[in-house]
Design a protein around this nucleic acid. Sequence first.
DNA 1: CATTTGCCTATCATTTTGATAGGCTTTTAT
DNA 2: ATAAAAGCCTATCAAAATGATAGGCAAATG
Lengths: 134, 134
Amino acid sequence: MISTKGRYALRVMIDLAEQNSDNFIPLKDIAARQNISKKYLEIIVKELVSNHLLVGASGKGGGYKLCRAPEDYSVGEILEIMEGSLATVACLAKDSDKCPNSSSCKTLPMWAEYDKLTHDFFNSKKLTELIEKK
Amino acid sequence: MISTKGRYALRVMIDLAEQNSDNFIPLKDIAARQNISKKYLEIIVKELVSNHLLVGASGKGGGYKLCRAPEDYSVGEILEIMEGSLATVACLAKDSDKCPNSSSCKTLPMWAEYDKLTHDFFNSKKLTELIEKK
DNA sequence: CATTTGCCTATCATTTTGATAGGCTTTTAT
DNA sequence: ATAAAAGCCTATCAAAATGATAGGCAAATG
């Protein structure tokens, strides 16, 4: 289940892409448009900046903007950052220890198959596809 | 993320299918084989029975067994019962109120697409496929 | 140099997750 | 009958995740 953090992050990215501006967009404006508390968005946006999906600028005239073209963002990378991992089961998460039963686990191949399906789906889904699909 | 309840339920179903017996299998035995606390399994198994995926019998010689052929169970129905819903986002869960923004939501079509992918994957995956794939 | 904006830290309530435990009831083989 | 084997019901619990809210400090620019 995708949490609000992931979904809000996506909405922020879409919002910024739609502004289609070279200026920095104040978080206050995004929060107002998206109807999400600015304070909560700060947490989310900070992560997006530290993972180089956004650039932030302080001061008057500051705010946030994309640092790539919208078509160069995949939904997958946005969600992966906010959710930590898109893995379906714990033993497939990137930082998990290898499960001791993995060699005999009857369900692991299925989870791996589904995991690939998920990653392929979200990684091939570009931000631009969400904008046109108004 | 699939929780332990869903994963344990699947393991119980696989275990029972593998016994390939017409007798009732005691939960104690399943718990021992699967290395899961019997008490915890009771919770899980109860739900499987009330949703008609298993039949239980009390008394000496009692236990649980499948009530259909293994090929007639889909992984999807097992997970759906244990996880409540396989929906990726809350607004796609079966009992959720329709989101007021759904008509203008830019991400909803994507979630719906992924949801279909997920359901198709797990509903077409049969219990038998997990048994052969040792 | 005041304004606008981001940044950092703390706190919070609620829900979900992952169990454990005790004791009661039901069934049935002997 | 009755003991043994099994399920059933209720309560409780700790820990983590979720979804926020709030205050004040720091930085930058017109």
